[in-house]
Design a protein around this nucleic acid. Structure first.
Lengths: 220, 220
DNA sequence: TAGTTTTTTTAGGTTTGTCTAAATTTTATT
DNA sequence: AATAAAATTTAGACAAACCTAAAAAAACTA
């Protein structure tokens, strides 16, 4: 397989994430996502097109090819395995792992990654709850779970709100929780099954079991 | 502190190693050591001089400044900690770790390295027996040991030959052992205390206890 | 739909790190 | 000491990955 530079890998990875949300990815979006200028993105896309990583027609947006997606999943696998390592073995906090993993993910020795995976016990999710692709690029399908059932120290994403009562919505609004919001389950209080929840950059708060039974989440 | 590119770091690190052996380092030596052309080395030295990492006068050879040495020890620390990790935790063989560590050493998060060090239990030597600088750049002073006393699975460097008898020298010549040669102690045979020794890229051989008592080595 | 705004691309430049070929300096040799 | 050889530096180029400013295309909008 061809070899890709760090910059090429960053483009491929970012396209992968952006194309989850929309049919095609635009030049401006990608420039924004990577932190470069649109003109630089155009340059890079020409190169990635030649290397058959993207479908791209000038002015028409772009998308990874099947090969590009496979490659992207490899980068994501490396990133998330390192995040797991940093969090699990080196005691990094879950919000500190990303920056370091950004560098480590580009060290591309296949043997290194396979052995790291084994050393970590073939984890299925990173500390943010995002799934870790296996060495074939396959990803665990995640089903929705009731927030009240989540173990402590997990990070989950709100995916559905069952009960649309004013009280629940009031609380959600107050805590600024919406679909897609990531919640960190800090701990569960035995005596009433209430749970302590934290949202990135905000103080933790308590949620009752009743409330949590109406919020569905996915891992990650 | 200033930030150095991967290429700059490779130059600094290689100068450090070369200047152990001689007063000053030459352009050709460094080019050879890094795998570039002498002209490229000259370019890089101008830059490193401006950044106060080397003492350098055109045509006169060069040497790291005190600051340069300190920086080099930081790179070497990262390299050897990763080698230890790869060998100890990921079960890489001792001769496979170097190449991967070459990449990992340039990931320069201070926090990462300090936590890795703690996770590994603050090891003092890498799998080749080379000392790992601490976070102040200090290195464990190693004393000479009798080869016959070395535990199996260690790598040592020949540092002194006591008995200058023809028989011993004959054997040393035959096995191509000289000062500075690295020996891997594979195992010790209980019944006569002979030891099995391997030199990189050569078949293993057996050495008697008597012989080993006349060879002194240092860790690494 | 014609004009305006936004998005994207092109054209031309810069920096980093490399190269080859030629010039210069140092070192070795006779 | 003069000359030949070796080492080093300079000069000029190139590729990668970025940039700014201008041109071109697409998308809005009145």
């Amino acid at each position: 397989m061809v070899n890709f530079s760090t910059s090429e890998e960053n483009h491929i990875k970012t396209i992968f994430h952006l194309q989850q949300k929309a049919e095609t990815v635009t030049t401006n979006e990608l420039a924004e996502g990577i932190g470069t200028k649109p003109a630089s993105v155009t340059d890079m896309l020409k190169k990635l097109k030649i290397k058959k990583m993207v479908h791209y027609q000038p002015y028409q947006g772009f998308r990874l090819t099947a090969e590009g997606e496979k490659y992207a999943l490899g980068i994501i696998r490396r990133h998330r395995l390192w995040e797991f390592f940093l969090s699990e073995k080196l005691n990094f906090k879950w919000d500190e792992v990303h920056a370091v993993a950004e560098d480590l993910e580009h060290v591309s020795s296949r043997q290194l990654i396979e052995r790291l995976d084994a050393f970590l016990g073939f984890p299925k999710f990173d500390p943010h709850g995002d799934p870790i692709p296996d060495n074939q690029g396959r990803v665990e399908i995640t089903q929705q779970l009731m927030l009240s059932e989540i173990k402590s120290n997990k990070i989950v994403t709100v995916s559905q709100i069952k009960n649309q009562s004013a009280q629940l919505l009031e609380m959600l609004k107050h805590q600024q929780i919406q679909l897609g919001t990531k919640l960190e389950i800090k701990r569960r209080f035995e005596f009433d099954n209430s749970i302590e929840i934290k949202i990135r950059n905000k103080p933790a708060f308590i949620m009752s079991e009743q409330q949590a039974q109406n919020i569905f989440v996915i891992n990650g």
